[in-house]
């Protein structure tokens, strides 16, 4: 009965809406939809279509259907592809381990309102403000073989950016330097939002600091953990800037995003081949997006 009345009421409210309201609502839904379709879905669909063609980007009439050739080529005779997949996965795993844990630890330490914590907060967060192009340049000063700080101080002759067995790790350290501050800030914000009475209750129950953190604080920060998870996945899939400014994503720094750019941007105009790489990247991203959405929806249903 009760629900019935409510439904009827809401119908009456709907009827009251004038044509002006309808127009406003219509345009608020319509304009973004058109934009999303035009700027996201159409180009994405075009990429998928182009990935089955060969096209040099000059005339539409020059588009030539080649079936799955681009995909076959990528998987079989394109040497940078498999290293790129591997590097993206290493990137993902590394960002999960080092900067996330480090960022969390820093946040917990800085949350204790120790002396000078504001200074440290700023210091750790500073790299996040810098563009990755600048980060690459700053680390070049450390990593340069002949003139770099690290080799100068330790008397080593490691070719940090050039030796393909170490350069990925060197770049990951540079990325982490920036990423840690970011994770720290998010956790710091999360910790500030945790109700103080929870800590008190835990203290009354006799839990020590470590136990309080793992059994009370950490579970409460579940939404923050989800955000961090998503950010790490996105950051590692869209990793691009740093390797691009270092060596255009070659020689040990291959990433899918860099390969797409190599083939499409610049003088090389392998639009079909580049699109195929972009589609592969899109598929990989979708897997993670699907997992994330599943978790979020399950959360909401609860």
């Amino acid at each position: 009965m009760a629900t019935d009345t409510r439904r009827r009421q809401s119908r009456r409210v709907e009827k009251k809406r004038g044509w002006k309201d309808r127009l406003v609502i219509g345009s608020m839904i319509g304009v973004p939809t058109v934009l999303v379709v035009w700027l996201v879905w159409l180009p994405a669909a075009a990429s998928v279509l182009l990935s089955f063609t060969r096209w040099n980007g000059f005339k539409f009439s020059a588009i030539e259907w080649v079936g799955t050739k681009n995909y076959v080529d990528i998987a079989t005779i394109y040497p940078p592809f498999w290293p790129a997949i591997r590097h993206n996965l290493i990137w993902l795993a590394f960002l999960f381990v080092l900067p996330t844990i480090l960022g969390m630890v820093l946040a917990v330490v800085l949350d204790r309102n120790m002396w000078g914590s504001r200074f440290y907060q700023t210091a750790f967060y500073l790299p996040v403000v810098l563009s990755l192009a600048l980060v690459g340049f700053i680390w070049q000063l450390f990593y340069s073989t002949d003139q770099g700080l690290i080799n100068e101080v330790f008397g080593s002759t490691v070719d940090w950016y050039g030796d393909s067995s170490v350069n990925l790790w060197a770049v990951l350290v540079a990325t982490s330097w920036r990423h840690t501050g970011y994770i720290m800030l998010i956790y710091l914000a999360g910790l500030k939002g945790v109700d103080a009475s929870l800590r008190e209750a835990a203290a009354v129950d006799g839990a020590n600091e470590v136990k309080t953190f793992f059994h009370v604080i950490f579970p409460v920060m579940r939404p923050i953990n989800m955000i961090v998870l998503v950010i790490v996945v996105i950051e590692s899939l869209r990793a691009f800037d740093l390797v691009w400014i270092i060596n255009k994503g070659r020689n040990g720094l291959e990433l899918i995003s860099a390969l797409v750019s190599q083939n499409v941007i610049g003088e090389a105009t392998r639009y079909g081949f580049g699109s195929a790489l972009a589609v592969i990247m899109m598929v990989i991203s979708s897997v993670f997006i699907a997992i994330y959405l599943r978790i979020v929806f399950r959360e909401e249903r609860r």
């Binding site: 700027l39 996201v40 180009p43 990429s47 800037d241 995003s257 750019s261 580049g274 899109m282």
Partner: peptide, 9 residues
Amino acid sequence: RRSILRGAL
């Protein structure tokens, strides 16, 4: 960047 890339196509 990715949407720009995709857009560039």
